[in-house]
Simulated scan of single mutants.
Amino acid sequence: MDLQILPLAVTMMAGPQIVAAVVLVTSARPVRVGLAFVLGVAIATALGVAIARGIFALLGQAFAPGRPSDREVAAVVVQLVLVGLLALVAVKNVVRRRTVEPPKWLGSLMEAGPRKAFTTGFLIILLMPSDIAVMLTVGANLVQHDVGWTAALPFIAATVLIAALPLLVYLLLGKRAQRAMPRLREWLTTHSWVVNVAACLIFIVLILAP
């Protein structure tokens, strides 16, 4: 797997994903729900990458059996299509920035228990369009280099580490984090469009980088 794929872990958690992690850390049971959220993210990322690799492996066998060069071309085409879609998403967020509101489910996380936190971490990865795009890119890269799912473990680990950052900051900084996290939560929820645009742009730059 290319090392340039690793930074895509940043886009996996950019947007409502990292906002959810921050919100959970400001809840009544930050450690328990934070750990449950991170576990959900870890399982979903591993599962998503495995599915994405399987899809591209089947496509490669169906349309270009025994021809790695054709599979590489197909993977590049898919990646460029994903970049185009993300560019449209970024433009949409900029145009509608004054009317964009944070998802209502983010507010409900303040009262979340470990089960809901786990479910949120799991679904927020598997159902988020930007994360699906990233995992498809990783899956295509694995097939392109003819390597197994385990080659994506560094990417999965990086995604999990980023998901755990709010919890780690909370544990390391203690009371200072308790004072700072609510302010960070409020900024992220009111400027969600900025985070979404940044995630799209980072993804586009990384995927187009030589």
Results as ranks from 00 to 15, higher is better:
residue 1 M to Q: 00
residue 2 D to G: 06
residue 10 V to T: 14
residue 10 V to A: 15
residue 11 T to R: 08
residue 11 T to V: 14
residue 15 G to Q: 02
residue 15 G to T: 02
residue 16 P to D: 00
residue 17 Q to P: 05
residue 18 I to Y: 00
residue 18 I to R: 00
residue 18 I to L: 08
residue 19 V to P: 04
residue 22 V to A: 13
residue 23 V to W: 02
residue 24 L to A: 01
residue 24 L to W: 05
residue 24 L to H: 03
residue 25 V to W: 05
residue 26 T to R: 10
residue 27 S to V: 04
residue 27 S to P: 06
residue 28 A to H: 13
residue 30 P to L: 04
residue 32 R to S: 13
residue 34 G to H: 00
residue 34 G to C: 05
residue 35 L to V: 14
residue 37 F to G: 03
residue 38 V to F: 10
residue 40 G to I: 03
residue 41 V to Y: 01
residue 43 I to R: 02
residue 44 A to F: 04
residue 44 A to W: 01
residue 45 T to M: 05
residue 46 A to T: 11
residue 49 V to T: 04
residue 52 A to T: 12
residue 53 R to I: 11
residue 54 G to I: 13
residue 55 I to V: 15
residue 56 F to W: 10
residue 57 A to T: 10
residue 59 L to G: 15
residue 59 L to I: 11
residue 60 G to R: 07
residue 61 Q to T: 13
residue 61 Q to G: 15
residue 64 A to P: 09
residue 64 A to F: 11
residue 65 P to A: 02
residue 65 P to Q: 06
residue 68 P to E: 13
residue 71 R to I: 14
residue 72 E to K: 14
residue 74 A to R: 08
residue 75 A to L: 07
residue 76 V to H: 11
residue 77 V to Y: 05
residue 79 Q to K: 14
residue 79 Q to H: 13
residue 80 L to F: 09
residue 80 L to E: 08
residue 82 L to E: 03
residue 83 V to F: 09
residue 85 L to A: 14
residue 87 A to I: 07
residue 94 V to L: 15
residue 94 V to F: 10
residue 94 V to Y: 07
residue 94 V to D: 07
residue 95 V to T: 10
residue 96 R to E: 12
residue 96 R to P: 01
residue 97 R to W: 13
residue 101 E to G: 10
residue 103 P to T: 01
residue 103 P to W: 08
residue 103 P to E: 10
residue 106 L to S: 03
residue 107 G to H: 06
residue 108 S to R: 13
residue 111 E to Y: 12
residue 113 G to V: 04
residue 114 P to A: 15
residue 115 R to D: 06
residue 115 R to S: 15
residue 117 A to S: 15
residue 121 G to S: 12
residue 121 G to H: 12
residue 121 G to R: 08
residue 121 G to F: 04
residue 125 I to Y: 01
residue 125 I to D: 06
residue 128 M to W: 09
residue 130 S to M: 10
residue 131 D to M: 12
residue 132 I to G: 09
residue 133 A to G: 12
residue 133 A to C: 08
residue 134 V to Q: 04
residue 134 V to F: 01
residue 135 M to S: 01
residue 137 T to C: 02
residue 137 T to Y: 01
residue 141 N to I: 00
residue 142 L to V: 09
residue 143 V to G: 02
residue 143 V to F: 00
residue 147 V to C: 15
residue 148 G to A: 07
residue 150 T to W: 15
residue 153 L to K: 00
residue 154 P to C: 00
residue 156 I to S: 07
residue 156 I to K: 01
residue 157 A to K: 07
residue 158 A to W: 03
residue 159 T to L: 08
residue 162 I to F: 13
residue 163 A to L: 05
residue 165 L to C: 10
residue 166 P to C: 11
residue 166 P to S: 11
residue 167 L to E: 13
residue 167 L to A: 06
residue 168 L to D: 04
residue 169 V to L: 12
residue 173 L to D: 02
residue 174 G to D: 06
residue 178 Q to A: 10
residue 180 A to M: 14
residue 186 E to A: 15
residue 187 W to D: 03
residue 188 L to G: 05
residue 190 T to S: 14
residue 191 H to P: 01
residue 191 H to W: 04
residue 193 W to L: 06
residue 193 W to P: 00
residue 196 N to R: 12
residue 196 N to E: 14
residue 197 V to C: 01
residue 197 V to S: 01
residue 197 V to G: 02
residue 198 A to N: 05
residue 198 A to I: 11
residue 199 A to D: 08
residue 199 A to M: 11
residue 200 C to G: 08
residue 203 F to C: 11
residue 207 I to S: 09
residue 207 I to L: 12
residue 207 I to N: 12
residue 210 P to L: 12
